[in-house]
Every structure is written in C-alpha cells, then in structure tokens.
C-alpha cells in the first residue's frame, strides 16, 4: 500500500483504504490520504482516473465499497449527503447542476438550507421567527453574491447566465452552506483565460476565509498556480503527491499523462504540464 500523506498538523479529511467498484470495474482502489486544513489541495489525473468518483464518495452521493472517510474527525462514509453538508462540506458539480428556473439569489438561498430551520408550519403561517430568518437568509445570500462578484445578477434566472457565471454561481451556492471543506469539480472547464484567472483569485480568497479547498481540475496553469499540494490519481489509485513543483518534475506523472515515449524524450515539450508562469 502506498500511503502518500502530506505531513501537517490537523487533517480536515482523512481517507483510509478507500475503494469503489462498479460491477467489474475498479473505480477507486485503496486510497489512503490526508488533507490538512486550510490549504488548496488539487487532485489531477487523466480522464477516468476516478476524481469525480472520489468527490461523490466524500460528499455522500456514492457509498464507498471499502475503507473509511473521516471529515472533521467524524466517520462519514455512508452518510446521506445532506448530513455531510450540515457538518460543513459542500461541493460544485462538473456538469453545472444549478436550479435553472430559480433566480441567482434564490439558488444561493437554497445553499443556506442547512444553516436555517423553519419548517412547513412556520413558513406556511409566516410565524415571526420565520420572517426574521428569511430576511437573514436574503442578506447573507446577497453578501455571498457580492463576494463572488455576481451581486448585480441577483434577479436573473440562473439558467440564463453564461457558463462562466453559472460556474461561479455554483461556488456561491456552495459557500452559502458555510463549508469548512469545499470540493470544486473542474470549475475552470469551459472558462476562458481571463475568467480562469478570476476563478483562481476567487479560490484563493475562499481559502482565506478559513475554508479548505479540494480542486479537481484539468487546467494545469490554474492547478500549478494556486495549489498548495497536488495528488495525482491514476486508474483509481494515488500515483504521486506533493507540491506543484515536485509533481511537475515527477517522471512517473509525466509518464502517466503522456506515455513512455514522451517521458524518455523531452519533458520540456510537454506544454500542458510545463507551460505555466509558476508560483
């Protein structure tokens, strides 16, 4: 077992021997890894490496076959997603999964669900406590929209926004749950260079709000720029982990991405991994 574990004081997420199998296909195999609190952790790997499957396991959409997941010291494997969300874990989706027919503001307000309480009776009868809560929900949602830069679009229907803004709105909705750990699944997919730069800056500001970020991303410039640590998955198993510069020069990683020939010839011509401004 290759346990590649970064040394850090307080891990917010601990995976131990995590495995998932779909029929005969092994999607994740024996993943043991710890994510320290307060960092930006990236997970990279070729398509089909199991990155999204791993996110689905951590956020509760998929129950792992084997192994354990500890989030904030609680064993959460097998919990329903809404319980995990209430414990302080939120996520975005690779395929945008907004509530398309609700307004931008309402989408973010839905994100405040685990931080509010009013039920059927209180809301139907408009009891005073519910009105106060509704006001608070609205104010918090507005301040989150301002934080991500979508404040002007609060009234627009979410489904009418361009993709770049939809991706940011997903992050805003996730932030509304007040996560301690935020999983971002390919947030830069479909974004142009300028939008991706703004996204990188936003992610760093989120980390500044005492939120740990785990980023699954194919945009290597973004990953190398903002990550504190990178985990490389390859066929559902950790291949390597470390700082961006260590990963960039890791021959195994280059081989996994580009095959034997490339690794032997010239790593310098490998644009995707190498062509970035650096930290």
């Amino acid at each position: 077992m290759t346990a590649i574990t970064p040394q850090a004081a307080e891990p917010i997420l601990e995976l131990d021997g995590l495995g998932v199998q779909f029929g005969g296909v092994v999607a994740l195999r024996d993943i043991t890894y710890q994510v320290p609190g307060g960092i930006i952790q990236s997970i990279i790997g070729p398509n089909g490496a199991g990155k999204t499957t791993l996110f689905n396991c951590i956020s509760g959409l998929l129950a792992p076959g084997t192994g354990s997941i500890r989030f904030r010291r609680q064993r959460i494997a097998g919990w329903a997603p809404h319980r995990i969300a209430a414990l302080g874990l939120s996520r975005t989706f690779q395929q945008v999964a907004l509530f398309a027919h609700m307004s931008v503001l309402e989408n973010v307000m839905v994100g405040r669900h685990p931080r509010s309480r009013s039920g059927f009776l209180a809301t139907g009868l408009r009891l005073p406590g519910m009105r106060r809560e509704e006001r608070e929900l609205r104010e918090r949602a507005r301040s989150i929209l301002d934080f991500v830069g979508l404040g002007d679009l609060a009234a627009a229907a979410a489904g009418t926004l361009p993709l770049g803004q939809q991706k940011i709105l997903e992050i805003a909705r996730a932030l509304a749950t007040e996560p301690r750990l935020l999983l971002l699944d390919e947030p830069a997919g479909g974004l142009n260079t300028r939008e991706t730069e703004q996204l990188g800056e936003l992610i760093q500001r989120i980390r500044g709000r005492d939120t740990t970020v785990i980023l699954v991303e194919h945009d290597m410039n973004l990953v190398m720029d903002i990550s504190d640590r990178i985990l490389v998955l390859y066929f559902g198993h950790p291949l390597a982990s470390g700082t961006p510069s260590a990963i960039k020069d890791n021959p195994e990683v280059i081989q996994a991405y580009l095959g034997d020939d490339w690794a032997e010839s010239s790593a310098a011509s490998y644009t995707s991994l190498d062509n970035h401004p650096g930290r």
Partner: peptide, 21 residues
C-alpha cells in the same frame, strides 16, 4: 420560503439539492 425553495430545488436538480443539505 425556505421550504418552497427546497421543494423546487428537489424537482429541478435532486442531487444538487441533496448536496446543499
């Protein structure tokens, strides 16, 4: 209200609704 938004969220995108708590 919170409840109505939750119901509409479930209808429109169930897994996201679940992930939002």
């Amino acid at each position: 209200s919170r409840v109505g938004r939750a119901l509409r969220a479930i209808h429109q995108e169930e897994k996201a609704a679940e992930a939002m708590g």
